[in-house]
Nucleic acid binder design. Structure first.
Lengths: 213, 213
DNA sequence: TGCTGTGAAACCGTTCACAGCT
DNA sequence: AGCTGTGAACGGTTTCACAGCA
């Protein structure tokens, strides 16, 4: 809640739409488009113009009546609102296939994020590096190692039975948000945002839809 | 829509809850619990009992008044309803880090799914196998190779600019559902269910929440 | 008595439609 | 004239509360 009376909720769905919107705006900017109306945006990317306006209105008035939105300004405002105007440090627990894939991925590096380290319990992996050079450290050092790195986001990419303790170690190390890939519900941790990205749910969701098609 | 007047919608949220419920029920079964009421289930796993009953009621009446649900029966009914009582064949396009991680993952194998093949354009990878033995084939053979495998689900794990054509190739090969990991919107394909699992959205979502905490 | 299944109520997010600014 | 920003209507989902069955 801020002083101007806007900015209340910001639901899950809104959040996703803002990410999508940012991607669209980047595309437009790359094409050299200077200005765009909510309806043109909606038509181009298959969205709803009223919803775009509602979503944006949450963060102030940065459209120009009779004209639309200035593309570059819109992009910067979105990045700012989403906290992408600075780089956040990410650490990943679990240097298995998935953990290394994430550490090396474009998503987890450029544009607001850097992966500072991988952590694992496997002595053979500790000390080596991922393909793009992210160091693999000993998982027992998590609470002590994170503060100097300034890690804000922790990713859990370990087997199910190790997930909860990995999350706790990350929380002890001071991360403020956790992205969990293990098919396990992480119990709530005070002061930490936990987001589950359970791949099982997505696959089972598809299966479910296929079963009733 | 079926003959008994139930089974209409089944929203996204419902679908996810059913997956979660199945996981909970499996846990209970492993603990040897024979029977459980919706309120006990709700309390144990932090859910809402009325919602559990509503979700289940969509698929018939399999609770016992005054008692609750029989755990094993509930599990079997859920598996059936979600189409997990048989094994679906999955193929993955993109044998990079992520593709291989998925091919070898527990999620994508046991419990209703098997990964039959990986596909890639890189000649050095073609013909080799993933760590757990999934063959890597030439991506140009997708449309021809899929039908004999009986592939129903395709996973897109390629760089952004190759994602749309990968999805089209999968559709031509006859898959009925696609799970897309590339940060690109796949245009709708008639007769194919497309689900986007954009990792960028999840990370940006966390950043957004951190920015306003 | 105890719990399910379900109509009714409350809630939330989306869409509509227009007043008002440029 | 054109488009934003927004109050009001709508539709869907969640929660409540209870009738009815074991």
């Amino acid at each position: 809640v801020n002083g101007k009376g806007r900015t209340d909720s910001a639901s899950e769905a809104t959040t996703q739409r803002l990410s999508l919107l940012l991607r669209c705006v980047r595309t437009l900017e790359a094409e050299g488009v200077r200005t765009i109306s909510s309806s043109a945006l909606a038509e181009r990317f298959g969205l709803n113009s009223a919803q775009i306006r509602k979503d944006l209105a949450m963060f102030g008035e940065f459209g120009v009546r009779g004209v639309g939105y200035h593309v570059t300004e819109l992009k910067n405002r979105l990045k700012e609102v989403m906290g992408l105007d600075r780089t956040r440090v990410v650490v990943i627990v679990g240097a298995g296939n998935l953990g290394q894939a994430l550490a090396d991925s474009r998503n987890f590096n450029g544009e607001g994020f850097t992966v500072a380290a991988l952590f694992d319990v496997d002595g053979r992996k500790i000390g080596s590096r991922s393909r793009t050079g992210v160091v693999i450290r000993d998982a027992s050092g998590i609470p002590a190692d994170l503060p100097p790195m300034g890690a804000e986001i922790g990713v859990v990419a370990v087997p199910p039975d190790a997930a909860v303790s990995a999350a706790e170690a990350l929380a002890n190390g001071g991360v403020k948000a956790i992205l969990n890939f293990a098919p396990v519900t992480i119990p709530p941790i005070p002061g930490v945002i936990v987001k589950n990205m359970d791949l099982t749910f997505f696959l089972e969701g598809l299966s479910f839809q296929l079963a009733r098609a």
